[in-house]
């Protein structure tokens, strides 16, 4: 794909995702405002909301074993280990409240986890302490500070070529994600998550990134890794610029023609 097309595409996404970024990046200052306050303790509202809307899948005790979970794949998250996939914090760290809020509000594409925007903001915020109360990890550890997202570089042809080189040679993403990014690399078939369930490396051609489809979000996914899954963090191996190039390359694997039918 030509860089210009990619730029256009990214521009388009940014437009559609403006709302999401707005929420994601304004969470911190908004925290100061009263309405964005996450309750410090489990409240009645939180318990009720969880029981009514979340427990059918995530289970009464948050073990991901609700009555609907049985043959579902991917499984509803088991909250007991504190392993959250979509974070702004480094590998292995617990998520920040903002990260959890983002997932609840936007859902997880390609799974049964819908965007819970039918719930009020207050309800969505109130379940956060409930989710955390399911894991001992939140008693022992604190979330690390978020990783730094460096200044975005331009997706030039040279940069995308560098991204390709990282994908194919330096970090060998293809071993899991496949050369064309279809999630069918040689190691793909045997992947398992930390809970012992089979998991498929993401198919980039679909473009429906679970953790969000903006360049910032894609950048964050391989910088932080997806906790509880084989998807590692590559924070230690790449400079900031290399990471943007890898982001653009990964996004250039999206096949819009095919995505339409999916």
């Amino acid at each position: 794909m030509k860089p210009k097309v990619l730029l256009d595409k990214i521009g388009l996404w940014s437009a559609t995702a403006v709302a999401s970024i707005a929420i994601m990046f304004s969470m911190a200052p908004m925290n100061a405002k009263a309405e964005f306050k996450v309750p410090t303790e489990v409240t009645e509202l939180g318990k009720d909301t969880y029981k009514k809307y979340c427990s059918p899948c995530h289970g009464e005790e948050g073990k991901g074993d609700g009555p609907l979970a049985r043959s579902m794949l991917p499984k509803p998250r088991d909250f007991s280990r504190g392993a959250y996939k979509f974070r702004t914090t480094p590998s292995g760290s617990l998520p920040r409240d903002e990260d959890i809020y983002r997932t609840i509000s936007f859902g997880v594409p390609n799974s049964t986890m819908i965007p819970w925007d039918v719930l009020t903001e207050e309800q969505r915020l109130s379940v956060i302490p409930v989710l955390k109360s399911f894991s001992e990890a939140f008693e022992v550890r604190k979330p690390d500070p978020p990783v730094e997202v460096g200044l975005m570089v331009r997706p030039t042809e040279k940069c995308i070529a560098e991204g390709k080189k990282i994908y194919e040679e330096k970090l060998e993403c293809w071993k899991c994600h496949g050369i064309e990014g279809r999630g069918d690399g040689p190691s793909a078939a045997e992947q398992e998550d930390d809970f012992g369930f089979p998991i498929k490396p993401f198919d980039f051609t679909t473009g429906k990134f679970k953790g969000g489809s903006t360049p910032q979000e894609v950048y964050l996914r391989f910088t932080t890794g997806l906790n509880g899954t084989p998807m590692p963090s590559f924070a230690k191996e790449l400079t900031d610029e290399e990471r943007w190039c890898l982001t653009y390359y990964v996004m250039s694997l999206i096949k819009p023609e095919e995505t339409k039918n999916k």
């Binding site: 504190g82 590998s91 292995g92 001992e136 990890a137 550890r141 970090l171 071993k175 906790n227 590692p232």
Partner: peptide, 24 residues
Amino acid sequence: EGMHNIHTRSMKNQPFNLGTTYKQ
């Protein structure tokens, strides 16, 4: 020479899953 990752599943000790390359 190839890529590896080092992945732990601990609960109390902070787990990690890092992609690593030669000499890391």
